[in-house]
């Protein structure tokens, strides 16, 4: 990484974690739209320097929560403090210290990559000259320097997302809010975004993100909450959540028969929890290999056996169910 990009880091963002006062504090936070309750009384604390995730299926209330934290959506109930201030009364003062990367890109397609950053920086009162310098540093950071003077319109989805992230940093924010930062990106683009976000995290920037990608949450989040139906159903580090809500390992058995159901009864007592899916049976166990030996000892011969570690995805599906949410 070049010198310019390095300057985006330590010098400005380095945040001594002397105070434990949360940057974001919600108690019984509620958001209602008419008769529909999108967020149903959640308690959240986000501390300086941490990467905090909101996980959940579509409609869980993640984006509504993010909009309240972004001070563009007044809470319908409960208490919310951001940077020690009241989002309804002090909206502009709080937003001056937030960086927001929305779910849908809202860059100006007719402006150049650089102009998107410089015009945005002016909203925060960044002087023109500083804005130009900072735009150059940030474009370096998100690897878009070569496209600085091209229009935004023809950029790929990954480039646009990186530019949106750069734009969220023009005011050197204390907290960066990212709403599904890699949704819709191809694997290469996702990895590049993750890598940049990880770098920000290392520099001490507080990240708050929503996602429904479990690998994203495992990669980036120090701590996360799983939301479902507007409530928090679990909270902790990815590791702790797996330990608490799943077993260490999972054995996936696939039987060559029409229905897996017939075999489920023969697996009694082998696992902490048995889940029968249309195409396979999952055994949640502490030791996968032992379980496989026991399955074979019962004379069962699955067509395919896979032993793997429990993932956050197992926790997520366990807590929020397998029903499709559209």
């Amino acid at each position: 990484m070049s010198k310019g990009a390095a300057a985006v880091g330590g010098r400005r963002y380095g945040r001594p974690v002397t105070s434990t006062a949360p940057l974001i504090r919600a108690r019984g936070l509620v958001k209602r739209f008419g008769a529909f309750t999108a967020v149903d009384g959640i308690d959240v604390d986000v501390h300086p320097g941490e990467a905090f995730g909101f996980l959940g299926p579509n409609g869980a209330g993640k984006s509504s929560t993010m909009r309240m934290v972004g001070c563009i959506s007044p809470p319908s109930g409960g208490e919310l403090r951001i940077l020690g201030m009241d989002p309804v009364r002090d909206g502009p003062a709080i937003r001056a210290r937030l960086g927001v990367c929305p779910q849908l890109d809202n860059l100006d397609p007719d402006l150049t990559v650089r102009e998107n950053l410089t015009t945005y920086a002016r909203y925060f009162g960044v002087p023109r000259r500083t804005a130009r310098e900072r735009a150059a540093e940030l474009l370096d950071f998100v690897q878009l320097t070569e496209r600085a003077d091209s229009r935004v319109e023809p950029l790929s989805g990954g480039m646009k997302r990186r530019l949106t992230i750069a734009r969220a940093l023009v005011n050197e924010p204390d907290v960066v809010l990212l709403d599904e930062p890699t949704t819709g990106l191809d694997p290469q683009a996702r990895h590049l975004v993750w890598e940049r976000l990880f770098r920000l995290k290392q520099q001490g920037v507080t990240l708050v993100l929503t996602t429904h990608y479990m690998d994203e949450a495992e990669q980036l989040c120090d701590r996360l909450v799983v939301m479902d139906g507007g409530r928090i159903v679990a909270e902790g580090s990815p590791r702790a959540l797996i330990e608490r809500h799943s077993t260490r390992e999972v054995v996936e058995l696939r039987f060559a028969a029409e229905s897996q159901e017939a075999f489920a009864g023969k697996l009694d007592g082998l696992a902490e929890r048995v889940e029968v899916l249309p195409d396979r049976i999952l055994l949640y166990v502490a030791d996968g290999d032992t379980a496989v030996t026991q399955v074979e000892a019962r004379g069962l011969t699955p067509a395919a056996v896979l032993v793997r570690r429990s993932s956050l995805e197992d926790v997520f599906l366990h807590l929020t169910g397998r029903t499709l949410v559209d």
Partner: peptide, 14 residues
């Protein structure tokens, strides 16, 4: 379409 207002709304503008 461009959602420029949404972008401005996230900044410290009223």
């Amino acid at each position: 379409w461009t959602r420029s207002y949404t972008a401005q709304n996230a900044a410290p503008l009223r």
